[in-house]
Nucleic acid binder design. Structure first.
Length: 136
DNA sequence: GCCAACGTTGGC
DNA sequence: GCCAACGTTGGC
């Protein structure tokens, strides 16, 4: 099983929206590197859900419910794909960007190394550590 | 509001 | 194929 981190601006689509809807097609990714990550996702993979810009914190865990399919919001024949994500669990408490940066064990975290990439892989030990930080 | 990072576009 | 210009993202 692989682990991931997906970003969303809460003003555009928040964890609360995600929970309310019970899941969503993760559409709108228009970057090849992020698309490649979407294509590598398999059902059962877990993804940290990060609120960018206004909140800057990991707030929950999503689970990949369906592997990639063409992004219905893109033109037919375009290379863009979406996966279907469902809520898996909220975090006990959000883990802020500052907290991620402050932990030297997360120095290689994709989010920190390439802050603009909207879908990044997360190493299992990084994933577990972030969950542990959320437990306080 | 500013700016750094970075991806894309287009002229040459 | 190179690179300058430009647009977008997202942290500060």
């Amino acid at each position: 099983m692989n682990h991931w981190l997906v970003k969303s601006e809460p003003e555009a689509y928040s964890w609360a929206d995600f929970v309310r809807e019970g899941g969503t097609d993760w559409t709108g990714v228009r970057n090849y590197q992020a698309r490649n990550n979407l294509q590598a996702m398999q059902p059962g993979d877990l993804a940290l859900f990060y609120h960018s810009v206004s909140e800057k914190a990991v707030v929950g865990v999503a689970i990949v419910h369906a592997a990639h399919a063409p992004d219905a919001t893109a033109e037919a024949g375009s290379p863009w794909v979406a996966v279907h994500l469902r809520p898996h669990a909220p975090l006990g408490r959000p883990v802020s960007l500052a907290a991620l940066k402050a932990d030297e064990r997360l120095a290689q975290l994709g989010l920190l190394r390439q802050s603009r990439l909207s879908v990044t892989p997360v190493r299992p030990e990084e994933f577990d550590l972030i969950l542990a930080l959320a437990e306080g």
